[in-house]
Simulated scan of single mutants.
Amino acid sequence: MSNKEFEQQLQNALASLPNEIQPRRDLWPGIEHALNSQAAEPVVTSSKAKPYWGMAAAVATVGLLGWLGLTQLPGLSDSAQLAQVLSQQHQQQKQALLASFSGQPALTDNWQQQVDELDAAALAIKQALKEDPNNPALLKMLQQVYQQQIDLIERVHAPAWQKI
Score class of each variant (00 low, 15 high):
Ala120Cys: 10
Asp132Thr: 08
Gln11Val: 07
Gln93Thr: 11
Gly66Asp: 14
Ala57Cys: 13
Val85Lys: 14
Met141Cys: 09
Gln149Ser: 04
Leu70Lys: 09
Val115Glu: 02
Leu98Cys: 05
Gln143Trp: 10
Leu82Phe: 15
Leu73Val: 09
Ala57His: 13
Ala106Ser: 10
Thr71Glu: 03
Pro133Met: 00
Lys140Val: 00
Asn3Ser: 12
Leu138Val: 07
Gln143Asn: 08
Ala15Met: 06
Gln92His: 05
Gln72Ile: 15
Gln114Asp: 01
Pro136Gly: 11
Asp109Ser: 03
Leu123Ser: 10
Ala15Ser: 07
Ala49Ser: 14
Gly66Arg: 14
Ser16Asp: 13
Ile125Ser: 03
Val62Ile: 14
Leu70Phe: 08
Glu154Phe: 03
Pro74Leu: 13
Leu35Tyr: 07
Ile31Thr: 07
Phe101Ala: 03
Phe6Pro: 02
Asn12Leu: 14
Pro42Lys: 12
Thr45Phe: 06
Gly75Leu: 05
Ser100Cys: 04
Gln149Leu: 02
Asp151Val: 02
Asn135Met: 10
Pro105Ala: 14
Trp161Cys: 01
Asn36Thr: 12
Thr45Cys: 04
Gln92Lys: 13
Gln91Asp: 05
Gln91Arg: 13
Gln104Tyr: 01
Met55Pro: 02
Gln72Cys: 08
Gln22Phe: 09
Pro105Asp: 03
Ala58Phe: 09
Lys48His: 03
Ser100Arg: 12
Leu70His: 08
Asn134His: 06
Ala121Met: 11
Ala137Asn: 12
Gln22Ser: 11
Ala15Pro: 03
Pro29Gly: 05
Gln92Phe: 11
Asn36Ala: 15
Glu117Gln: 10
Leu70Asp: 06
Ser16Pro: 05
Ser16Phe: 02
Leu139Gly: 06
Ala49Tyr: 09
Tyr52Pro: 04
Ala58Lys: 11
Ala160Tyr: 12
Trp28Leu: 09
Asp151Thr: 15
Leu152Ala: 07
Gly54Asn: 08
Gln162Lys: 01
Ser87Tyr: 09
Ala96Ser: 11
Ser100Glu: 11
Gln89Pro: 03
Leu142Lys: 10
Leu64Asn: 11
Gln127Asn: 01
Leu70Glu: 07
Gln84Arg: 10
Val156Cys: 00
Gln22Arg: 06
Asp26Pro: 09
Ile153His: 00
Ser87Met: 08
Asn36Arg: 15
Asp116Asn: 13
Met141Gln: 15
Gln93Pro: 01
Asn135His: 10
Val43Tyr: 07
